[in-house]
């Protein structure tokens, strides 16, 4: 079916489906643009990670939904749902790994953090390691 065969008469449900999927496509593309602008303008790794998740989850959801609306069949929806759930499961894991590595290698502006819960954990682990090695009294540095 060619793109020119789209029904634009808004009295029918077909045209509304086309309109909704077109809006989904444009908004999903704008998510990617937002991620690129965030990558260019945000100051450090952690805030860039915040921007980078937009096309991975919401953008992919909108684009897959537009595919499902355009195909006009029901059997594609489970396939698209599996693709989206896979992305939903893998994105937090990779973001966790990147954020942890960024924290360890100090790729962040500490003055921009509002809370730092990982710092207490790191101090505790360092104290435990020091006690185990027999150095000091267990206090962190």
């Amino acid at each position: 079916m060619s793109p020119d065969s789209w029904n634009l008469d808004l009295a029918t449900g077909d045209a509304w489906i086309n309109l909704v999927s077109a809006v989904f496509m444009v908004v999903g593309a704008v998510m990617s643009l937002g991620a690129a602008i965030g990558l260019l303008r945000f100051p450090d790794l952690l805030s860039r990670m915040h921007a980078a998740t937009k096309p991975q989850v919401l953008g992919l959801f909108l684009l897959l939904a537009s595919i499902g609306l355009q195909m006009r069949t029901w059997w594609v929806w489970p396939v698209l749902l599996v693709a989206w759930i896979f992305q939903l499961l893998t994105a937090p894991v990779s973001a966790h790994m990147v954020g942890r590595a960024g924290y360890r290698t100090k790729h962040l502006h500490r003055e921009l953090l509002s809370t730092d819960e990982l710092d207490a954990v790191v101090q505790k682990a360092a104290a435990k390691a020091a006690r185990k090695d027999g150095f000091g009294d267990g206090s962190p540095h």
Binding site: M25, G28, A29, M31, S32, A35, A36, A52, P55, Q56, G59, L60, L63, L64, S66, I67
Partner: peptide, 9 residues
């Protein structure tokens, strides 16, 4: 992600 989005479009 941008490449995948373009393929989806």
């Amino acid at each position: 992600a941008i490449l995948g989005g373009a393929l989806c479009i």
